[in-house]
Design a protein around this nucleic acid. Sequence first.
DNA 1: AAGTGGTCTAGACCACGTT
DNA 2: ACGTGGTCTAGACCACTTT
Lengths: 234, 234
Amino acid sequence: MSLDIYSAIPLHVQLKEILIKEIKCRNYTDKLPSERDLMERFNISRTTVREALSALVNARVVEKIHGRGTFITSHPINEWLGNLSSITEIIESMGMEPGIRLLFQGIQSNPEIGKILGVKEYYAIERLRFANDDPIAIERNYYPLSIGQKLKEYDLNKVALYTVLESIGVLHEAEQLITCTIPNAEEAKLLGLVENTRDTSVLKAETEGNTVEYYRAIYRGDKYAFQIRLFRNK
Amino acid sequence: MSLDIYSAIPLHVQLKEILIKEIKCRNYTDKLPSERDLMERFNISRTTVREALSALVNARVVEKIHGRGTFITSHPINEWLGNLSSITEIIESMGMEPGIRLLFQGIQSNPEIGKILGVKEYYAIERLRFANDDPIAIERNYYPLSIGQKLKEYDLNKVALYTVLESIGVLHEAEQLITCTIPNAEEAKLLGLVENTRDTSVLKAETEGNTVEYYRAIYRGDKYAFQIRLFRNK
DNA sequence: AAGTGGTCTAGACCACGTT
DNA sequence: ACGTGGTCTAGACCACTTT
């Protein structure tokens, strides 16, 4: 793996992505190579190395310790687990009935997403989430094709996804590839329920006298992931 | 306002703090000086300027637009205000009675915290927060000694802190130095109410049949601040 | 003493947006 | 054309940690 100095993608971004991949592949047990090592290995200046590392520090992927080195904060799998079923859990805890409708299931090849996942094609599942019959979010999950093959057999209109993943024994591999989004402002409007207030990160919906608020809550990796927080007003 | 090159505080940190101050004092209506302007004004390299600005971008205080300049995202003071009293507000909005008990008030000198604040000694206030007589959080606020001097005279068992800060006219300076934490797992256990579930960022408490959940929610500035979200389960 | 990250410089060229 | 931020270099010295 090396950098392409003719690429339009900045070197520090390229390096960052390589490091993320290597961390995910467990190439480092705990500690990353030193900044000067990376500098030599990729033939770039230390500033550029530090720029890449800064992004990772910022994304909480690694942590720097003065005089000791750069360390992987934790393998992010466990944290993901909590999020997988959280929409259902939170809706339930509000005394509302969670619902799911499958929008799409099959192979996709969006280059932007493929780049993040590190593959060309992937298995996508898009589902509309409900709380008391009110659509509140679009959830998207992306998996490697191998896992998608196994998912075909299940009725994803009813079953919680992570239950399926667990039952076919691929929960841990699958986790790293999942992204889950709430609607952005445009999508939300299409759903007919959301009014953009301050910025795209805080949305409000009025359903049956209940004000439901959405917050950006979880930052993961180098891209945003979203988790829903519901507040029932009264 | 200028930089002290002999100070132990890095130049980019000094610059960052000056810029924060100037933003809060409304010295800029919308747009910050260009990187090259700041470079000349403070006699530092552009790298250092960019390092300071990066921290502000990261903290969502400013936003950079390629080819146009660096812009203030929004005057961040109001948002802070919301957080200052948010614990009280949220408890009230749940129909519960908020309470406060002062645990400690005085000068402290924890090196770790001092480092964050950029001083050796600081004035600390630790308060236990209640919802319906149930302790739910420990709140810690740190201030420069000058402000602490003035805070001594108030009964912090009763008064909302930000009301005091406002009345003595130091709200704006104080803001940057406040940190507010919910109990970590260990502390929570000492409070006798919380069971750690998945990780330290999600805690649950069962009080009088109500399940209360705590979430890390808000990232502000260069350090973490925390905001509590309560969910009453029916 | 050696290795690590932290800070800082001076200068270069590129890409984008406004005038 | 000009000003802006974006990227990148090569080198320096400091502060902290381990050996």
